[in-house]
């Protein structure tokens, strides 16, 4: 038997148990087995792919429209997320919220975090988006050698980050 990823003989046989259809047996050579096993315990792609498949079965014709939806902050499209299983920025959880919620229910059976909370918070989703936008603007300013503007933005970012600075207190309210 050959490895699933290359021409070498498959010497490792791994059973994956996250598949809803039952255990899935995979065959790898030593190198690819190591790669597979060093990944996180729960293979996100399997879980996401199956949850998305379930969800998209319900979306039907709207899928094309959904796929084209893009995050205004990082520019990732839903299609790209669907293909990679990875989101582009924290704001995606807000921008794609209604599309992600069924996925979260499929994967976690919940949409509500009840665990640990940081003692200081970046505040609203909007302020997170603003910070990422500002950071990008700062990089652009540096690139065109507008150091005055860059340092203004740096101060603004610092004020948003610093919990003692007055600006961040208003952003502590939750959305």
């Amino acid at each position: 038997m050959k490895c699933q990823f290359c021409e070498k003989p498959a010497t490792f046989h791994i059973t994956e148990l996250t598949d809803p259809g039952g255990p899935q047996v995979m065959h790898f050579c030593e190198e690819h087995a190591k790669g597979f096993l060093h990944k996180e315990a729960s293979p996100p792609m399997t879980a996401i792919a199956s949850a998305l498949a379930k969800q998209l079965g319900q979306v039907g014709d709207d899928l094309e429209e959904l796929d084209q939806k893009e995050c205004p902050v990082c520019g990732i499209s839903f299609f790209e997320f669907r293909n990679s299983g990875r989101l582009g920025c924290p704001y995606d959880y807000t921008h794609f919220e209604s599309d992600l919620r069924p996925l979260l229910i499929n994967v976690h059976d919940s949409t509500e975090h009840i665990g640990k909370r940081p003692t200081r918070s970046a505040g609203t989703a909007d302020s997170l988006a603003k910070m990422i936008g500002l950071r990008r603007e700062m990089e652009e300013a540096i690139e065109r050698e507008d150091y005055e503007r860059a340092s203004e933005i740096r101060d603004e970012l610092k004020a948003m980050e610093d919990p003692i600075a007055p600006k961040s207190t208003e952003s502590d309210t939750t959305s």
Binding site: E40, A41, S42, P44, A47, I48, G85, R86, L87, P90, Y93, T94, L100, L103, L104, V107, H108, S110, T111, E112, H113, G115, K116, R117, P118, R120, S121, A122, A125, L128, E161, T174, S175
Partner: peptide, 26 residues
């Protein structure tokens, strides 16, 4: 370090399978 945290979804992660606690105990 200021973390990406959402009041409803918890610690925000690149992959939605890790969101919330971001915790994996093995």
């Amino acid at each position: 370090i200021l973390y990406a945290f959402h009041p409803r979804y918890g610690y925000l992660t690149a992959c939605p399978t890790n969101v919330g606690t971001g915790l994996r105990v093995s």
